Simulated scan of single mutants.
Amino acid sequence: MSQTATASKASTVEALRKRTYNIRRHALRMGEVQGQGYVGQALGIADVLAVSYFHALKIDPKNPEWEERDRFLLSIGHYAIALYAALIEAGVISEDEIEDYGSDDSILPMSGMAAYTPGMEITGGSLGHGLGIGVGMALGLKRKQSTSRIFNLLSDGELNEGSTWEAVASAAHWKLDNLIAIVDVNDQQADDKSSMVLNYEPIADKWTAFGWETYRVDGNDLEAVLEAFDSALASNSDKPRVIICDTLMGCGVPFLERRDKTHFIRVDENEWSLALKELDDVYGIQSGEK
């Protein structure tokens, strides 16, 4: 790689790192408003959302329903706080909406609903249906000869659902090279660790066997996520793509990283300010710089 290319890549990574900080901070602020929320997942998936919204996706923040946009589908509806944080950072949603998160008549309900929120393409629940919707959308775009892509974020727990694997098979059958699935592997779901409820390994081999072009990365290694997205976007294969991202719930806030992992991480009232301070410290942000 030339010095110019290296410098350009470093600049891109640094710009995305600032986005990850802001996404994590927006999510924590929303959590503080309600005193709860799936902040563990939001912190864990922030790097992936930063690369998605500020590097990969073709969108118009001023016109979320622009026909030529790429569509980002949140199959895991309870991750809404994470997507809201990305949409706020992207300028699709005003930062002022944070103060109304989860309240009556808010455009940011605690579980994502397309009818309420600009930029929310689908209502992601019950779980296991997002990828099927994505297959339908991708096939429709193909038949319209559109160059737009579908990105679908789903969870390791959704791999328990038979409908997910029907969608995986269908996407390969229809050669949907305009579909990119993103799997968040944090090994947590409501009943237990995902791997204990129903073991999903060897996860990459399964997707490959179904006919997908498969990538697996540390989802909290920003540079690795960036490279995986670039490879998926640049590929000339007629296969759909999947980027499997191993993430750590609570990433970016050390005391939450260390906390016993459950589907819903508890954060006490006095800990929200501590979480924001630790996030600032991790990113080297001084008071007044935000």
Rank of each mutant, 00 (worst) to 15 (best):
A190E: 13
L233V: 07
R29L: 15
H173N: 06
D230P: 01
S8M: 10
A224F: 13
D96A: 11
R266G: 13
L43I: 08
E227N: 09
S11C: 05
F210T: 02
A80G: 10
S273A: 14
G288T: 12
A224W: 08
N199C: 15
Y283K: 03
A114V: 09
K58R: 14
I23G: 00
S146A: 07
T123C: 01
I23L: 03
Y84S: 00
G35K: 09
N199W: 07
V13A: 08
L233P: 00
Q188G: 09
A5F: 05
M1V: 04
Q145S: 07
A114W: 13
G102C: 03
M120K: 01
L139A: 11
D187R: 09
I81A: 03
T6Q: 12
I182T: 12
M249V: 12
H55Y: 14
D238R: 02
R241F: 10
D192F: 02
L127R: 06
W174K: 11
A115R: 13
D104S: 13
A234Y: 03
A85Y: 06
V185A: 12
V92Y: 06
A56Y: 10
A167L: 05
V13H: 04
D184A: 08
L233Y: 08
D238S: 08
S103H: 15
T164L: 10
E269Q: 14
E213A: 00
L176Y: 06
D238N: 04
A181Y: 10
G44V: 02
K175I: 07
A27R: 08
S126V: 02
R149G: 13
A7K: 10
L73W: 14
T4Q: 07
N22V: 15
G211S: 03
I133P: 00
L159P: 03
D281I: 11
D205P: 01
F210M: 07
K261F: 05
H78D: 08
V135H: 04
D156A: 09
A85F: 11
Y116S: 15
P254V: 05
T6E: 08
T123K: 01
H26S: 06
A234I: 05
M196R: 13
E271H: 13
R258C: 04
S194F: 11
K193D: 03
N63Q: 11
I203S: 00
A172D: 05
S163Y: 04
A114G: 07
I203G: 04
I265R: 03
H263C: 10
N178V: 07
N178W: 00
V267A: 02
I203C: 03
L226P: 02
Y200Q: 14
G125V: 12
T208Q: 10
R241N: 06
A86P: 01
F151K: 10
